[in-house]
Design a protein around this nucleic acid. Structure first.
Lengths: 133, 133
DNA sequence: CAGCATCCCGGTTGATACTG
DNA sequence: CAGTATCAACCGGGATGCTG
């Protein structure tokens, strides 16, 4: 059942050591997915552009500095656009690019898996703790 | 095209603030995926059990301590099994559980996306750097 | 062989306060 | 409003040395 997956994974992790290449596709994407806030930002922008403060309030609990960092990194990687309006007070809109929006698919697969299996994971943890007691 | 994804993502990130619940499905899985070595370990085990040293050499560049940490965390979460043989010299086999193997699917989706789009990301980075110069 | 104990370093995260 | 500046705290991660 995992033969196709196995092949794909091996191609990435075993093939020619590219898993240790910092520019390896796996690495680049995984680093961004693994980032605590990127997924939230994508979730916050899937249904339209938002302003900085709107994002902040929507996500909640994120420091301005960190949000800025996340946003800049995503902009740098072409996942979203940053539009500055020359007016007072300042206004900046953030919107997903096609690329950024297309990441929603893989993320959704992951979150689907998570929803399906998180119970098993938590059960495994409980059992593990129980065993070592 | 992203309407279904949008709905799913919103359910996870917007729904009821569970994105900030440490036990939120998204969080748990993302933390594990985001881990530098977990994906490599899965890739190393998809085609059968391996011993500690075999894993170490296969993955390469991972300190024993860190590999142990990763392995333990994955065992704790029911992603793999750890089998100790009472013999001298010691022997420990690691193998993916069904749960662990099933994570290969979502990971493959992610890596597929990565392979398809990493060029765009890198191009976006270059362009970004060029612009600010 | 497997892996734990210890020490340590650097980068990242975050809270707080301030500004164009 | 949309950040930047600054400082403090916190691990992830690695090197080394030792054991059952």
């Amino acid at each position: 059942m995992v033969t196709k997956q196995a092949a794909e994974l091996r191609a990435l992790t075993e093939g020619r050591g590219n898993a240790f290449d910092p520019d390896c596709p796996t690495r680049v994407v995984l680093d961004r997915i693994g980032d605590k806030w990127t997924v939230l930002v994508i979730g916050a922008l899937v249904d339209g552009p938002r302003r900085f403060t709107a994002l902040r309030q929507h996500i909640g609990g994120v420091a301005p500095k960190v949000l800025t960092q996340t946003l800049r990194a995503m902009e740098r990687d072409g996942l979203l656009t940053r539009t500055v309006y020359a007016q007072v007070p300042p206004r900046v809109d953030y919107a997903l690019t096609d690329l950024g929006a297309s990441l929603g698919g893989p993320i959704a697969v992951l979150t689907d898996w998570a929803e399906l299996n998180v119970a098993k994971i938590l059960a495994a943890r409980d059992e593990f703790v129980a065993q070592e007691a």
